[in-house]
Simulated scan of single mutants.
Amino acid sequence: MKCYVINLEGSSDRLRWFTEQEPLSGIEILRVPAINGSHLEQEERMTLMERRRSDYPVPAGVLGCFLSHRRAWEWVSDNEDQWAFVTEDDAHIFKDAKMFFESTDWIPDDADIVKAETSQEVTELSARSMPAKGTFRLRKLKAAHRNTAGYFIGRDTARRLLHLTASYCDPIDEVLFNPDLGISSNLMIYQLDPAICIQDNDAPGRIGFEQTIIRKQEPEPRTPMPFGIKKVVREIRRIYRRKIRPRFLQRLQISLFKKVPFAGDP
């Protein structure tokens, strides 16, 4: 299985660090040149912004990240391999994760994507799981689970996503892993539990890389706070989503609500 790593021009130190990780030894790594959103012409940016389907802010860095992952999908779709691993150059790969790259026999037949990363935020997973490799399990991902530092994707799925996102321009992690945007709800997405991948910012052995494609200093527009009846409705929905619904589904043993651990956590 090939590994497609998204890397911005001029970030050779990050690429070198990424490729020297032990689990990737012997794995074919292809550098996908990242797209710098701040280098796009204003007219092109405005055209892309008209494709937004959500209220999430899309500053230049987020736009570049979206386009960079679509470029990676193009590369995957043009390759003969049935499965590929798409990642970003600040991803920490679990030291014993090589077995997941050496074969695809652990990937379910109905899978479109297997999310290999954790954002370490609570998400909704299927209560039932199936074996992957070793002690790792696979669970169906049923709610938003953000970040796109590492995921296995089928070649046919990459082609399908290129078609589905041709008229989109939203944060890539929301597009892929948030059913509310309408794309991932049409895909079969599994989550590795525990995860074998984590972004440097959340990693236990953090290097301290600065964000490149998405820069922290980029201003993001603030969403006006609701008031009156809108605020009441929002609070009721929030309590239902975070408290009532999870308890009900867990009692029925339908869903599991938890933070997916990183396999490399101490």
Rank of each mutant, 00 (worst) to 15 (best):
L164H: 14
P219Q: 12
E124G: 10
S129D: 10
F227V: 15
L67W: 04
P59H: 09
T104R: 06
F177G: 03
K259V: 11
V232P: 02
I172Q: 06
I183A: 02
I244L: 08
A60L: 01
S103C: 04
I239H: 11
V58A: 04
T87L: 11
S25K: 09
L162C: 06
V86L: 04
M130T: 05
A60P: 10
E74S: 12
G264L: 01
K142R: 10
P221H: 15
F100D: 02
F248V: 11
M46I: 13
R215P: 07
V86Q: 02
I113M: 07
F100W: 06
Y4V: 05
A149W: 07
I153G: 09
K98A: 02
R16A: 04
R71Y: 07
F209H: 12
G182I: 02
P221V: 13
I207G: 11
P108H: 09
I29Q: 12
L256C: 12
D89V: 09
Q253F: 08
S68W: 06
N186S: 12
V76S: 10
D200S: 01
H39D: 13
R128T: 08
E9P: 02
L249D: 06
K258E: 09
G37V: 04
R52K: 12
F262H: 05
D156N: 14
E41F: 05
K142Y: 11
I172Y: 00
I189A: 05
S11P: 00
V232F: 08
D78R: 06
R215N: 04
L138M: 00
A203C: 13
L256S: 08
F209V: 12
M46V: 14
Q211G: 15
M130V: 07
D109C: 09
D170A: 10
P33D: 15
I196C: 09
A111Y: 00
R155T: 11
G64L: 00
F66C: 00
T19R: 12
S167V: 05
C197Q: 12
Y56A: 09
A72R: 05
E50T: 14
G61Y: 01
P219S: 09
R52N: 06
G10M: 05
Q211I: 04
A143K: 15
D156K: 15
A111N: 06
F101R: 08
E102L: 15
R237T: 01
D170E: 14
K142E: 07
R155E: 14
T223E: 14
